[in-house]
Amino acid sequence: METRTRILVVDDHQLVIQGILCSLKEVGDFDVVTTNNCDDAFQLIKMHQNNNPFHLLFTDLSFDNSTEETNLDGGEELIKAIKNNDFDIKIAVITGHTETNRVYNVISNLKPNAYLLKSKCDAVEIGFAVKKMLANDYYYTHEIHQKIMRRNIIQIQMDDVAIQILKELPNHPKIGNLEGIIKKDDGTLIKLRSIETKLSNLRTDLNANNNTDLVLKAKELGVID
Rank of each mutant, 00 (worst) to 15 (best):
M1E: 04
E2P: 11
T3P: 03
R6V: 00
I7S: 00
V9P: 03
D11T: 00
H13M: 06
Q14F: 08
V16R: 05
Q18S: 12
G19Y: 10
I20V: 15
I20Q: 07
L21E: 13
L21R: 15
C22E: 15
C22L: 12
S23Q: 14
E26A: 14
E26L: 14
E26M: 15
E26D: 14
E26Y: 11
G28L: 09
G28E: 09
D31I: 03
T35A: 07
N37S: 07
D39G: 09
F42Y: 13
I45K: 00
K46F: 08
M47I: 10
H48M: 07
P53W: 00
H55N: 14
L56D: 08
L61S: 03
D64E: 14
E68K: 14
N71Y: 11
L72E: 02
D73Y: 02
D73W: 01
G74F: 06
E77P: 08
A81D: 09
I82N: 04
K83C: 04
D86L: 10
D86P: 01
D88V: 07
I89N: 01
V93F: 02
H97Q: 15
N101H: 14
N101S: 15
Y104E: 13
N105D: 15
N113E: 14
A114W: 05
Y115K: 08
L117H: 05
A123L: 11
A123Y: 09
V124D: 11
I126A: 02
G127E: 08
F128E: 12
A129E: 06
A129Q: 11
V130E: 07
K132R: 12
K132E: 03
N136Q: 06
D137T: 04
T141I: 11
H142D: 14
I144D: 01
I144R: 05
H145N: 13
Q146Y: 10
K147W: 05
M149Q: 15
D160S: 13
V161I: 13
V161T: 09
A162V: 11
I163H: 10
I165A: 07
L166E: 04
K167S: 10
K167A: 14
K167C: 12
P173E: 10
I175F: 07
I175S: 09
I175E: 10
G176Y: 09
N177M: 13
E179P: 02
I181G: 05
I182V: 04
K183H: 04
K183F: 04
K183D: 01
D186E: 08
G187C: 04
T188W: 08
K191H: 09
R193F: 05
E196S: 07
T197I: 11
L199F: 04
R203E: 00
T204Q: 12
L206D: 02
N207G: 07
N209M: 08
N211Q: 10
D213L: 05
D213W: 05
L214M: 10
L216F: 13
K217R: 15
E220M: 15
E220S: 13
I224E: 00
I224P: 06
